[in-house]
Simulated scan of single mutants.
Amino acid sequence: MTITLSQQDYWDLVYSMDETDALSNQHEQQPESQKTDSQSADHDTTWRSHNPLRKGYYREIQIRDGLDLAIADECFHTDLIITSCDRDHPLELNYTLVGVESSNLNSTHAGQHAFYGSGMAPGEALNVVANQRSLCISIHIEPALFCQWAAGSPEQLPDQIRHWVKPSDQIYYIQVSKTTTAMQTALQQILQCPFQGLTQRLYLESKVWELMALQLAHTLEPEGANPKAKPLKPEDVERIHYAKEVLVARLDQPPSLIELARLVGINDCKLKVGFRQVFGTTVFSYLHDCRMTRSRQLLDAGELTVAEAAKAVGFANRSHFAIAFRKKFGVNPRTYRQEMLNSCRVG
């Protein structure tokens, strides 16, 4: 049986009950000479399983204000769907070392990582498969800190990465890539960090910025440094067109990338690369554009309210729908609908 939880319910159920134990155990395990005050202990917290839902741990380290590192090594005993609404999002590097991270918008396999810019993260549904171990390392960086590190201010960012930092009314940038050997080395050094206290935080911060530098180098590679994508076979092109039809038919509840690939008979990696080759955009960007176009058509018809139109195309949060609609069409959806109704009355 699959359990569906909101992001908040998930945290409350799995982690909140363990927080006190995690903090107290942290003190108990340290020698007297290495114990720090409670404020310092709060920088590094581990939640270990004390419930029948999962086994494993989730560790969160606040390296400095605006810079957090998390390590999750978990295995759940039941299938889960964890839903989230549209939300503001910092920059994030998310490395999958073991298992698969999959949602209705994106997926990464072991040996891959996802890079997210800052901006608006659309609501999604994360799929967790029972009895499969997952080991992930994620890094969250607030935009102001990143800009300070990279250039001093957002206006001074190089043109090639300016799209990494977007305001909260714009959908964030996302890129899924292979985790290079140099990145793998830095990740293993994070997992095996031998230090404690301030030394630990300095060491981990150096590894975080090393990973960001490697991501930056990957992005700034000269064009043509990577081999050209292989031409698609006719049958693969046909499957990719079918994938587009599935997305259009299921705007309110789109399948995950892995599910979509299975539905059309192609692997998810080839679907991601091939979709961009065929349509000149990512699966996610195409889905977002279709949702916005369909929502405008529904408002044109005048039969649905703004909230109903938002829900019909899969937006759980009406305010975030309004932001996306205004960004796409230059007008608030409520104003747009009223103008349509007025024009119908005049006609």
Rank of each mutant, 00 (worst) to 15 (best):
I71Q: 06
D73R: 09
S134R: 15
R54M: 12
G123K: 02
K233A: 13
K270H: 08
L202V: 03
N267V: 06
V283P: 00
V346H: 11
A182Q: 14
Q160K: 14
E60N: 13
A182L: 11
S107Q: 09
G302M: 03
Q160W: 12
K166C: 07
I3F: 08
L157Q: 06
I174W: 11
H288T: 08
V346K: 12
Q192I: 01
E101C: 06
D79H: 06
T78S: 12
R345A: 13
W149A: 07
L232Q: 09
L298V: 03
E19M: 08
M183N: 08
N94W: 10
Q184A: 08
A151P: 01
R48F: 07
Q156H: 14
M120L: 15
P31T: 09
A213H: 09
V246M: 02
L304M: 14
T20L: 15
R326I: 00
G117S: 06
G280T: 03
Y116M: 06
C290L: 04
R48T: 13
P158A: 12
S40R: 12
A322D: 09
W164I: 01
C136L: 09
Q192H: 13
L271S: 00
Q188S: 10
H27N: 07
D252R: 14
C85M: 10
L220D: 04
L67F: 10
V237F: 00
R250Q: 11
D73Y: 11
P231C: 06
P143R: 01
E28A: 13
I61E: 08
A301Q: 15
P255R: 01
S6N: 07
Q62F: 11
D21K: 15
N332V: 00
D86E: 11
V176L: 04
Y173K: 06
S343L: 11
K244F: 07
Q39I: 15
A41W: 05
G66R: 08
K55W: 02
F329H: 09
S24F: 13
Q148G: 03
F275Y: 15
C147M: 02
A130P: 00
L93S: 02
L220G: 02
T36R: 13
S38M: 13
D88Y: 08
P31G: 09
T293A: 14
Q148T: 05
C193E: 13
N94A: 12
P31C: 05
V278I: 14
Y116A: 04
S134D: 03
S153G: 01
M17G: 14
Q62P: 01
L202D: 07
Q160F: 11
L191E: 09
S49W: 00
G123R: 02
L299D: 03
F275S: 00
A316G: 15
L263H: 14
S6M: 03
S84F: 01
G152E: 04
